[in-house]
């Protein structure tokens, strides 16, 4: 890929939650393949600012793929064509002359705030409903008093890498957050420390999930395909299994 791409950007603009919103078209020139996708948008925003048009609002913070703040639908794919976050997508994934459509996450549980920025507070409320281990500060036993088998610790870690970005929801035709919930259920459920609350946790989190207006899971798998942290689909099986056990136990 050579430097200096010229691109057409079709970007969703919406002045506020009550605005209907629409796609606007912009041109950018001389985009280097070493730029990140968001740096390309920075360039566009500088241009807009210079000609007196309000820059496009979009979320990002760490710009290194770990905080989960960035959140763009790029050509209909959550976080774009690579298995990564929007901020870690680089322009070498595109070519001169491309037209790129950029939209916010689309899900009824994630209302648009402005342009490409959405409200993902529902994910926090799911965690509040039970996505934790109750361990007051100061009450913890010596860390090595409870060994954790390495394979369980590894699985817990692998799914604990979820960054709470919501791409799974945006990618799902049902707008389900099952992958996100399953990741947390599996992370805490794999560890001995997570056992005491294991079954109340799953019932409460699933209850909150449904209450927030996220859809049900019908095993389509778009979530796992879009997930930048490659959270595997089997966390949803774990979720369902734990939920069945919980219900049997009368939770």
């Amino acid at each position: 890929m050579t430097d200096g791409m010229n691109l057409t950007l079709n970007i969703w603009r919406q002045t506020g939650p009550d605005d209907k919103g629409s796609i606007h078209s912009y041109q950018v020139e001389g985009i280097s393949s070493d730029m990140s996708f968001l740096e390309m948008l920075d360039v566009l925003n500088e241009q807009l600012n210079a000609r007196g048009e309000e820059p496009i609002a979009f979320d990002s913070d760490c710009r290194e793929g770990i905080c989960g703040m960035c959140s763009l639908m790029i050509n209909g794919e959550a976080h774009g064509p690579e298995v990564t976050t929007t901020c870690q997508l680089h322009m070498r994934s595109f070519k001169d002359g491309d037209t790129i459509t950029i939209e916010p996450w689309r899900a009824s549980a994630f209302p648009v705030i402005k342009d490409l920025v959405v409200d993902r507070g529902a994910l926090d409320r799911i965690i509040q409903s039970g996505g934790y281990i109750s361990a007051n500060t100061g009450s913890a036993p010596e860390a090595n008093s409870v060994p954790v088998p390495r394979d369980k610790a590894m699985r817990a870690f692998n799914v604990a890498t979820c960054i709470g970005c919501g791409a799974c929801v945006a990618a799902c035709p049902n707008g389900s957050a099952s992958l996100f919930v399953g990741a947390k259920i599996t992370h805490l459920g794999e560890l001995p420390q997570g056992q005491p609350e294991r079954y109340s946790r799953v019932v409460d989190m699933v209850g909150q999930h449904d209450h927030e207006g996220f859809g049900g899971c019908t095993n389509i798998g778009e979530c796992a395909a879009a997930c930048p942290k490659e959270i595997p689909l089997d966390v949803i099986s774990q979720l369902n299994k734990d939920l069945r056990t919980a219900l049997k136990q009368g939770h």
């Binding site: 934790y132 281990i133 361990a135 500060t137 100061g138 009450s139 913890a140 036993p141 010596e142 860390a143 409870v146 060994p147 954790v148 390495r150 610790a153 817990a156 870690f157 604990a160 992370h187 805490l188 560890l191 420390q193 997570g194």
Partner: peptide, 14 residues
């Protein structure tokens, strides 16, 4: 470290 392990922080293990 004690506190974090009790919360379920998945530190690397041997």
């Amino acid at each position: 470290i004690d506190q974090c392990v009790a919360q379920g922080v998945p530190f690397a293990r041997e």
